[in-house]
């Protein structure tokens, strides 16, 4: 019996269930965190009615969304319309398989983990684009076009930053990257200024691109509610919208996890106390809070604003860090 439990298929099944439960729970409760956080930023209490401090609110929302009709409007491309939300959710779920939550807590410890995440990450854009395109709605189509043009802006600096990181660490294995950041907190990549003096800037670029990738404010041009009503999601009702909504949070979760792994030392404890998983979660949720904080502080950019930022600032700076760190590596 014990032997059966420790076989590979059972282990994978456990991780599959684990990750889905983790994402599901997080997607639901990040909505709560967002609403509660938004409330506090705006000097109001946020959800309070359902359960203690509104803790059952996500469940109430889910029941509401599930019990509504999934309307597929007349004349839409029904197949694409239905598949788009799933296409947004699936890559986030799959990518989490390679994220090391703890020293030995990763579903798959593969050597090209980082590559896998970025390969899957580009499907996101396609999902919103398909959703918008198949909706047969002017707002949605404009939103679809925006998503694609936005994609050009953030994908390049992200990849340049990631290449820098791969060069510094010499591996694409996420577990290995974390292991290299062992020790006190100044061994975390974000503080390793002797490897590259611009390391904090690199982290910042990664964080900005992550916000753009997840369509979060201030880069939420795709669903800009004051311009495009709800953008690509305009025609979606019921769980069609629900899955999109949860996928947004799943993507935030993934982005923050990746930032934690790449820059903040993953499960490495800064003081050597408490188990690794806990530290991972603390760091990740701090980033999630930062994402919420940013959203409820800034107005939305224009997409030429994002393109300007990307081409005039992020790409040159990330290219510069790439060259700088390669030069430093060559010299020392």
């Amino acid at each position: 019996m014990l032997k059966l439990l420790s076989t590979e298929p059972v282990r994978l099944l456990a991780f599959l269930v684990g990750i889905m439960a983790f994402v599901g729970l997080n997607a639901a409760y990040l909505v709560w965190v967002e609403r509660k956080g938004a409330g506090r930023f705006q000097r109001r209490p946020g959800p309070t009615e359902v359960g203690y401090a509104g803790l059952l609110q996500p469940i109430a929302d889910a029941i509401k969304l599930l019990s509504k009709q999934l309307i597929v409007p007349q004349g839409v491309d029904a197949a694409l319309f239905r598949v788009a939300p799933l296409l947004m959710m699936a890559p986030a779920l799959m990518s989490l398989a390679v994220i090391p939550f703890g020293p030995s807590l990763a579903a798959r410890n593969i050597n090209v983990g980082l590559l896998l995440i970025f390969a899957l990450g580009s499907i996101n854009v396609m999902a919103i684009m398909l959703g918008g395109w198949s909706s047969r709605n002017k707002y949605a189509i404009m939103s679809a076009a925006r998503v694609v043009s936005q994609n050009v802006a953030y994908e390049i600096p992200t990849l340049l930053v990631v290449i820098t990181m791969i060069m510094i660490t010499g591996t694409m294995n996420l577990n290995e990257i974390v292991r290299q950041q062992a020790g006190a907190f100044w061994h975390w990549n974000v503080f390793r200024v002797w490897v590259n003096p611009l390391m904090p800037v690199t982290f910042l670029i990664f964080f900005i691109c992550m916000l753009a990738e997840t369509n979060r404010a201030p880069f939420d041009m795709a669903e800009a509610e004051s311009e495009l009503v709800a953008g690509a999601y305009t025609e979606y009702s019921s769980m069609g919208f629900g899955v999109f909504f949860m996928a947004e949070y799943a993507n935030i979760l993934l982005g923050c996890s990746l930032a934690t792994v790449l820059f903040l030392g993953g499960w490495q404890s800064p003081f050597g106390i408490l188990p690794g998983v806990l530290w991972f979660l603390i760091k990740m949720y701090f980033l999630v809070f930062a994402v919420v904080w940013v959203r409820w502080t800034f107005p939305r950019t224009q997409f030429y604003g994002l393109l300007n930022l990307s081409w005039k600032l992020l790409i040159p700076v990330s290219l510069f860090t790439l060259i700088l760190s390669s030069a430093i590596m060559k010299l020392y």
Partner: peptide
């Protein structure tokens, strides 16, 4: 106006 520009928080500060 800030709501038009995508910032929600200022609205509630203003209403306060």
């Amino acid at each position: 106006f800030l709501l038009d520009l995508g910032g929600f928080t200022p609205l509630l500060y203003a209403f306060d």
